[in-house]
C-alpha cells in the first residue's frame, strides 16, 4: 500500500467522467423521465375526464330512453284512436250508403208503379172509348171527346 500518482490520475479521470455524465448523458435521461411523467399525468386526467363523460352520457341515454318510451306510447295511443275513428267513419258511410240505395230503390219502385198505373189508365181509357163506341154504335168525333175521356182517365 504505497501512495503514488495513480490517485491523481484517478481523481482527474473521475472529474472528467462526472462532467461528461452531466453534460451529455444526464440531460436526455432526465428529459425523458420528465416527459413520461407529464404523459402519465395527462393520461390520468384524460381517463378521469372520460369517466365523467361516460357517466354523463349514460344519464343522457337513460333520459332519452324515457322520452322515447313516452313518445312511442303516445304514438301508439294516437294510432289506436285514429283506427277507431276510421272504423267509425267507415261504418257511418256504409250506413248512409245503404240508406241512400234503399231510398233510390224505393223511388224507382214507386216510379215504375206510377208508370204502370199511367199505362193502365190509358189503356182503360182506350177500352172505355172502344166500349163507348161499341155502345153508341156510332162514330163519334174522337177529338171532340178526347177532353171528356182524359177527364175520365184522370178520375180513375
Amino acid at each position: 500500500m504505497n501512495l503514488n500518482a495513480t490517485f491523481v490520475g484517478q481523481s482527474i479521470a473521475f472529474v472528467i467522467f462526472a462532467y461528461f455524465c452531466m453534460k451529455v448523458v444526464w440531460p436526455p435521461v432526465v428529459a425523458v423521465l420528465e416527459e413520461r411523467r407529464k404523459k402519465i399525468i395527462d393520461g390520468l386526467a384524460a381517463a378521469e375526464r372520460a369517466q365523467l363523460d361516460l357517466a354523463a352520457a349514460q344519464t343522457k341515454a337513460g333520459e332519452d330512453k324515457e322520452i322515447a318510451k313516452r313518445e312511442a306510447a303516445e304514438i301508439l295511443d294516437q294510432a289506436k284512436r285514429r283506427a277507431n275513428q276510421i272504423i267509425e267513419e267507415a261504418k257511418d258511410q256504409a250506413r248512409a250508403e245503404g240508406e241512400r240505395q234503399l231510398a233510390a230503390a224505393s223511388a224507382e219502385i214507386e216510379q215504375q208503379a206510377n208508370r204502370a198505373k199511367e199505362a193502365l189508365r190509358e189503356q182503360v181509357a182506350l177500352i172505355a172509348i172502344a166500349g163507348a163506341e161499341k155502345i153508341l154504335m156510332k162514330s163519334i168525333d174522337q177529338a171532340a171527346n178526347e177532353e171528356l175521356l182524359k177527364g175520365l182517365a184522370a178520375e180513375l
Binding site: 500518482a5 495513480t6 490520475g9 484517478q10 479521470a13 467522467f17 455524465c21
Partner: peptide, 24 residues
C-alpha cells in the same frame, strides 16, 4: 510518488469508458 499503478488504472479506465459509453 511519481509512479503509476498501470493495472488498476487500466481496469478502472476500461470500466469507466465502458459504462459511460453504454450510458451515452
Amino acid at each position: 510518488f511519481w509512479a503509476l499503478n498501470v493495472d488498476t488504472m487500466l481496469i478502472s479506465l476500461l470500466l469507466g469508458i465502458g459504462f459511460m459509453a453504454f450510458y451515452f
